[in-house]
């Protein structure tokens, strides 16, 4: 089953994968115990592909994202992005976090500019123009000079999304970016993310425990099981876009994946 992972992807000719996770394992050692967090993870992500990693808490999905980002080191295996070995964090693999990681000492515009200022070879005018373009894309141009504390939770994550996209990273990593939001705001963001993704074709890896969200957004949903974290199955989602999170077809996928997910947890915990 694991062999088949990577054979799915966006339709059309298959170029070299954008990102390869090769045999990654991770242990967390505390003075009392050693926890096997990730076990031999293999994953290959195509250019412009939207991958969703789903699993119950403790399956190591956020750790995997940290390793891909370069924020955490793997104990075994390696990650290559664009053919380059990942050895530390860098602006080509941006992470959007669950809690608001916006900087409260900067305005919305200042936050989007933060990443852009670290992109070399851009003029001041180009940076400003890019920042405003991305704020417009997430519908917050009018709030460019608003302070972070004046924005609602949904607006903050929109700014965070603009901040993550603006420096044009090769891969965008999203760590449960919507799980702190209320259902209505979340649904709106599903629509926005899909609209922007249609347009930009970013390579995205999104981590979530919400199967419905994964089916709604992902080209492929990858199932992880806990202790130790392992990739169990990969579900290509053949649904037209834009997808409605409340549609019946989407619910059918969700049901299948949820059933599979339960199969991997119950026997080990009971």
């Amino acid at each position: 089953m694991l062999d088949s992972i990577g054979s799915y992807g966006p339709p059309g000719p298959q170029p070299a994968p954008k990102l390869i996770v090769d045999g990654v394992s991770k242990w967390f050692r505390t003075p009392r115990a050693s926890v096997h967090a990730l076990d031999d993870i293999n994953l290959s992500v195509g250019d412009g592909e939207f991958i969703c990693l789903v699993g119950p808490s403790g399956c190591g999905k956020s750790t995997l994202l940290d390793i891909i980002a370069g924020l955490t080191r793997a104990d075994a295996g390696r990650v290559t992005a664009d053919g380059q070995l990942v050895e530390g964090p860098g602006r080509h693999r941006l992470v959007m976090f669950q809690e608001s990681a916006l900087f409260p000492w900067l305005t919305a515009f200042g936050n989007v500019m933060f990443g852009l200022k670290l992109v070399p070879d851009l003029s001041r005018a180009e940076r400003r123009e890019t920042a405003l373009r991305y704020l417009r894309m997430v519908g917050l141009e009018r709030f460019a000079h608003a302070n972070v504390h004046e924005l609602s939770g949904g607006m903050r994550q929109r700014v965070a999304f603009a901040r993550s996209l603006a420096p044009d990273p090769h891969v965008l990593l999203m760590d449960e970016p919507l799980s702190a939001l209320d259902a209505l705001t979340r649904e709106q963001l599903y629509a926005d993310i899909q609209r922007i993704q249609q347009d930009r074709r970013k390579t995205i890896i999104l981590v979530t425990h919400n199967v419905r969200e994964a089916v709604c957004l992902g080209d492929r949903v990858i199932l992880l099981s806990p202790t130790p974290g392992r990739i169990r199955e990969s579900f290509p989602i053949h649904l037209p876009r834009p997808r409605d999170v409340n549609s019946i077809q989407l619910a059918e996928y969700t049901e299948r994946i949820t059933a599979a997910l339960k199969g991997y947890i119950v026997p080990e915990t009971v």
């Binding site: 860098g90 602006r91 976090f97």
Partner: peptide
Amino acid sequence: VYARAARTMG
């Protein structure tokens, strides 16, 4: 998370 976010932005 501030430092982590900053680091992934380079």
